[in-house]
Design a protein around this nucleic acid. Structure first.
Lengths: 109, 109
DNA sequence: TCCCTTTAGTTACTTTATGTAACAAATTAT
DNA sequence: ATAATTTGTTACATAAAGTAACTAAAGGGA
């Protein structure tokens, strides 16, 4: 019957990346620690969802949150080792997109 | 200001993979052409959504649909070259999951 | 012929996730 | 005390996903 099941670890990993915005947030943080407002602007995500996603990523151990008590307060989000180790995944998605995604078919809204 | 924008091709690619089930469907089809009912069982997706996703993947040129007029009818879904070339992405997700996902934390429902 | 079986979907409806925009907390310079 | 800035949160509208019953097609047997 070949009813072998999908690898549970893979399933967990891809369910993480299948959550909307999560991949983009990680990709963006690969270029270094960034603050909340910068992420909302560059990704195009609302504060509500960015907040929710970052909390989730922090809980999963992929991202850290650091408070700098300046004026006004600065809060930076950065990848942990676990988060940064998703770089090869992002690199492969990048590679694939360069080959298979038409420059014209971007923004299909 | 460093308000450089995220690569549009990357954004298109990851929005595809960010759609729920899509990654799992492609991953599963990497092991060869499979029929509708087999995919629903092994992935744990409803007929409604599998149908919707497969139509979408077909429209994107990632998957083909082949009808075998037997009794009862057999319909097989297979990856195109474009779809199969996502293998390196899936391999990297697999790698990451082997290192960073606890065997115990699977199925966090 | 008519009904049964099997695979491959679809339809109608409920529940969950996401989008939007106005509002609140914290901090400190004026 | 007031205003200004960043980092969120709350309340509500819209879109996507989950569920389960139903339909389409097509051969096989009574």
């Amino acid at each position: 019957m070949d009813t072998s099941v999908i690898c549970p670890r893979f399933e967990t990993a891809i369910s993480l990346l299948s959550q909307r915005w999560t991949g983009l947030i990680i990709y963006q943080l690969l270029s270094g620690p960034q603050r909340f407002s910068h992420l909302t602007e560059i990704i195009g995500i609302s504060g509500r969802l960015l907040s929710e996603r970052l909390k989730n990523l922090e809980a999963e151990g992929l991202v850290t949150r650091t408070v700098y008590p300046e004026t006004p307060v600065r809060i930076e989000y950065a990848l942990t080792e676990k988060g940064f180790s998703l770089k090869p995944v992002m690199d492969e998605i990048q590679n694939w997109s360069q080959i298979w995604v038409e420059p014209t078919e971007t923004r299909n809204v």
